[in-house]
Design a protein around this nucleic acid. Structure first.
Lengths: 299, 299
DNA sequence: ATCGGGCGATAGAGAAATCCTATCAAAACA
DNA sequence: TGTTTTGATAGGATTTCTCTATCGCCCGAT
């Protein structure tokens, strides 16, 4: 029964019988039969299909909600019983938005000190993907914006606030200033994330609000690519201050506060709003609260 | 998987492999194998057995908690999907303490008017049993004291308050009085519930507090037996006023308020604290809130 | 000490389910 | 119109499940 519900979850995220089957390590006929069996026991069609996957019926949606819950609980049960015998162990699957990737270590390092047998998998994802994968139990927790997208059924722990800075060489454009306006920044050629990233959209929005259209010289979905370019001193960028600090960019570049307006957004940890949480996730949330205090709350 | 968890639930309430197997409609070896399989997948012993059932291990207790939750959710899922297709239908299993049995109709009657396809099973149980069976998912909701036992993880809806009256013929002992004290009542030979019932313990406690020892002429766990005796006019009893009214005892007998102290206890509906509830239970809780208002709240 | 009954584990056979490979039909795409 | 993609179906092998029958153990009674 529970494995059939897992089929449904896989189908929900893959939207494709074949790929969902792969994800479950079964063949496509097996997954088809599993879904069909669920439909038989409920006496209701769960999936709309016309020679290809066409989404879930209303009943399917409800079953999907329950499936997420039940499958999640079953996993939490296994994990908890295992933890009772062998202490906290297993793999914690995280996803973070690119601008938060550099600070993940401030969560994982103290966590590992406390629970050395826990392994990590950390994905770089857009804020949308973080929430979607959290929903589908593909990850245990995420690090993303708390104040932009609607969060859904999650527990959120604010970690810090992004304050935006112009990263530029001292002898570059505006490099001698103590503060700059968004209007001025819009004149500077910039390196930014690609537009599917919320950080890019936030910054773009602030730039467009000045009435000017910014000049994005280079864009990438990889922070390490942006970092290596900006570090040369020949490219400018707009970044959260804490990120620039963590990357040691402020050693070689100026990080100039951008005003009018002084925008900021909250970044935090999100975990499924399950009660109780899995032991691994619960420990992470507890650590996150401690770290948030160390980081000066969400200030 | 889920059916194995059901085995565990049955074992928890029957405390006996054979009887638990019967309750699950399987043979004893099948249930034994199911439990063993759970133990194998978790890699932990769940049940202490020394040629007979000796309770659960600590890990078994935790698994049991999860099992209650998962099995309950699975049932709720089935019920909800069924309700989406065919409207509310099925069987609502209730348990009420004896002194509340007569008022159950004030819940079931409006419920049935709204949802004619729902069938009822109502058990007469002690307040302890109500909570235990609620815990083990043997019943969907219960009607019991809200202010005496610790309730545990339930949602409670207060329905009314029990105010105690001396039921006695007009020409019987104290029959002409407008109010009596517990001390006086302690002198009267009474018909009461048996001592495992909380109502009996409440009344006995009030009587003993006067320093006298009451004279319990007749006791039973059956309300209809008490009713038929008291109705003759030759036996006296102490009952909640609303109960006496519902049973029309006040037509033929006097119901004299008992003071010093004017004790009262709250009776209410209790349902598992599951979010979301099963549709049948949710509808019952909604009705209970309405009925509570009609009854004048918990006053 | 021995017998008898209750309880749960074990063995083995038959039944049922699950899962796979191979194939098919329909729709989508070029 | 041919090709590809997608999900359903058929048939057979394998695994899993569940039953009957029986055993071993503990306990209480004789």
């Amino acid at each position: 029964m529970i494995d059939k519900l897992e089929f449904l979850l896989a189908l929900a995220r893959e939207k494709h019988f074949g790929r969902a089957a792969d994800a479950c390590n079964v063949t496509q006929p097996t997954l088809s039969a599993g879904v069909k069996q669920l439909e038989d026991t409920f006496g209701v069609l769960l999936v709309n299909r016309g020679s290809r996957f066409q989404g879930f019926t209303p009943e399917g949606q409800r079953v999907l909600d329950w499936a997420r819950r039940i499958v999640g609980d079953a996993r939490a049960m296994r994990e908890e019983v295992h933890a009772l015998r062998h202490g906290l162990a297993g793999r914690l699957r995280l996803a973070a938005i690119p601008t938060a990737l550099a600070m993940v270590e401030s969560l994982t390092t103290p966590y590992r000190a406390r629970h050395p047998n826990v392994q990590f998998t950390v994905y770089s994802r857009t804020s949308i993907q973080v929430l979607a994968e959290l929903e589908n139990l593909e990850i245990d927790a995420g690090i993303t914006y708390l104040d932009n997208e609607p969060l859904g059924r999650v527990t959120a722990v604010p970690l810090y606030r992004e304050h935006y800075r112009l990263l530029v060489a001292a002898d570059g454009p505006l490099g001698s200033r103590d503060k700059v306006t968004w209007k001025e920044v819009a004149q500077v050629p910039l390196c930014l994330l690609t537009p599917e990233m919320q950080n890019r959209r936030i910054i773009e929005h602030l730039l467009y609000d000045t009435g000017n259209s910014p000049n994005i010289m280079l864009e990438s979905d990889s922070m390490i690519l942006l970092y290596s370019h900006v570090r040369t001193g020949s490219w400018a960028s707009v970044m959260p201050e804490r990120l620039a600090d963590t990357l040691r960019l402020t050693d070689v570049l100026r990080a100039i506060p951008i005003v009018e307006p002084e925008a900021s957004h909250t970044i935090g940890l999100v975990a499924p709003a399950r009660e109780p949480m899995t032991p691994l996730t619960a420990a992470l949330v507890a650590d996150a609260r401690r770290v948030a205090k160390a980081l000066g709350g969400a200030s």
